[in-house]
């Protein structure tokens, strides 16, 4: 009898996560809905002007969406090159000691708060790049991509390394046995076998980059215009929410518009996560690791 009560109690508490996830989506819907009604879905998503506080206001979030796309895209290039590169290094080239140091180091670096990255980007990277590249402002999409890219390295690196290590040793032996060298074995056998695992890493890195707030808020410059060059200041979606919520009138259209942006972000990251999960499931199936 008592046992049954415990079981039901735990079941109830276990449902908290479901409750929160559903709660978040309902909240975003309810708070974001007015803006879709008043501005219209199409004009909201594809409007080129974002002047939420002028009179009359413009609520077109295309500049914000494009800023997110540019900055995330740039970050991803850096994240993939450095992240997958170091994963390959750790897996293929590092000895036992190096590995034992590098793996925890990567883990610790993943734990550095985003505000610290943002601060670093603002006080050091931006002025440095401004002088080095002779650009008008240091706080721009490029700087944002760079710092955000560094931030995604630990995620991409550690998941990719896991994926590489799941590739059965027999694959490697078979390739070496037919006279391939280590690099050929790596690029033609190991990496393709780990391919969907690495894709999972990249998708999750991308999901993190899209949702990252403080860094882009501090280093991207904040201009809400559709970007035409990497050296322009931009305002990604997350930055817009964080920067403007303080000045938005509660219950006003601007307030609802920011929730609507949150809703879009929520679904983008949800989509990425679902895709990542599907890809990684296929990966485990392929290597016979399904459990």
């Amino acid at each position: 009898m008592k046992e049954k009560i415990y079981r039901q109690l735990f079941a109830l508490l276990a449902f908290a996560s479901v409750l929160f996830l559903v709660g978040i989506s309902i909240t975003l819907f309810v708070e974001g809905l007015p803006v879709f009604m008043e501005v219209g879905v199409f004009d909201f998503l594809f409007g080129k002007l974002w002047y939420p506080t002028s009179d009359p206001p413009d609520f077109g979030i295309l500049p914000l969406i494009m800023a997110t796309v540019w900055v995330t895209g740039g970050a991803l290039v850096i994240g993939i090159v450095l992240g997958v590169g170091s994963a390959i290094y750790i897996h293929e080239m590092a000895g036992r000691t190096q590995r034992a140091i590098l793996k925890p180091t990567v883990e610790i670096l993943a734990a550095i708060p985003s505000i610290v990255y943002g601060f670093f980007g603002m006080v050091l990277v931006a002025p440095f790049l401004q002088r080095l590249l002779d650009i008008p402002v240091g706080l721009c999409a490029f700087t944002g991509s760079l710092v955000l890219g560094i931030m995604t390295v630990p995620t991409i690196c550690s998941i990719s390394e896991d994926a590489l290590s799941y590739v059965p040793h027999s694959f490697r032996e078979a390739s070496l046995a037919v006279g391939a060298n280590r690099w050929q074995t790596l690029t033609q056998v190991v990496i393709p076998a780990a391919g969907s695992g690495i894709s999972t890493a990249i998708i999750l890195g991308m999901s993190r980059a899209v949702g990252e707030t403080m860094t882009v808020l501090m280093v991207c410059g904040g201009a809400a215009m559709v970007p035409t060059s990497f050296f322009q200041p931009v305002r990604p979606m997350t930055a817009a929410i964080a920067a403007e919520m303080g000045e938005a009138v509660v219950g006003g259209l601007h307030f609802h518009a920011l929730f609507a942006i949150g809703l879009i972000l929520f679904f983008i990251t949800l989509l990425f996560n679902v895709v990542a999960e599907m890809v990684s499931r296929r990966f485990r199936l392929k290597l016979g690791l399904a459990g």
Partner: peptide
């Protein structure tokens, strides 16, 4: 039941931090 719970946890982990902030604002603050 368990699959739904697991899926929720997995997806909750991926929600951007600023979205949690919005949720907190709407639910706890307001």
């Amino acid at each position: 039941v368990v699959n739904v719970i697991r899926m929720s946890i997995y997806n909750l982990a991926g929600v951007p931090s600023v979205v949690f902030g919005l949720f907190g604002l709407a639910v706890f603050v307001k």
